[in-house]
C-alpha cells in the first residue's frame, strides 16, 4: 500500500516524530511505500540541520535524512509553517533576505497542496501529533 504521513510536532519535545519514524520504517520493511512525509506546525523543526543532540541520543533529523536517501521517501516541509519558525532553504533565505539557511538534506520546502495531494494519492494517511 501507499502511505502518507503527517507530522505536527517537532523533535525531542514530543514523541510524534519518533512514532512516525518507527511506523515509516516498519511500513517499508513490510513492503509498503511511504509516498510522502509532510511536516507541519512545529513538525517543520524536524528539518533543521543545526541540531546537535548528545551522542548517546538518537539524531531525529539525521534519521529522516537517511530514510529519505535509502528509500526515496519524499520529505516535504510546509513553506508557511517553516518561514514562521525559521526553517529556510537557500532560495527562501535569498528571497527573505536572510543571511543563513538550515534545511537538512533529504527535505524540501513546498506548499500545503503537497499534503492534500498526499491525501488524494495515498491509500492511507496517518497523522502524528500532540
Amino acid at each position: 500500500m501507499k502511505f502518507g504521513i503527517l507530522i505536527n510536532e517537532g523533535p525531542y519535545q514530543h514523541q510524534s516524530s519518533d512514532s512516525a519514524y518507527q511506523f515509516a520504517k516498519a511500513s517499508i520493511e513490510k513492503g509498503h511505500t511511504i509516498f510522502r512525509v509532510f511536516f507541519y506546525h512545529d513538525g517543520v523543526n524536524n528539518a533543521t540541520n543545526l541540531t546537535a543532540p548528545p551522542t548517546d541520543d538518537r539524531n531525529v533529523t539525521l534519521r529522516w535524512t537517511e530514510l529519505a536517501q535509502e528509500h526515496d521517501v519524499d520529505l516535504v516541509v510546509c513553506i508557511a509553517a517553516a518561514l514562521r519558525r525559521g526553517i529556510l532553504d537557500e532560495s527562501e533565505a535569498k528571497r527573505q533576505n536572510k543571511a543563513n539557511f538550515n534545511l537538512a538534506d533529504g527535505f524540501r520546502i513546498s506548499g500545503l497542496g503537497q499534503l492534500i495531494e498526499a491525501g488524494i494519492q495515498c491509500d492511507r494517511v496517518v497523522v502524528f501529533g500532540d
Binding site: 506546525h41 508557511a80 497542496g113 492534500i116
Partner: peptide, 19 residues
C-alpha cells in the same frame, strides 16, 4: 496554540483541489 489557525490554512488550500 497555533493549531486552529494553521488548520484553517490547510482547509483554504484544500478548497482548490475540488475534493
Amino acid at each position: 496554540t497555533i493549531y486552529a489557525l494553521e488548520s484553517l490554512e490547510v482547509v483554504l488550500i484544500a478548497a482548490a483541489f475540488e475534493q
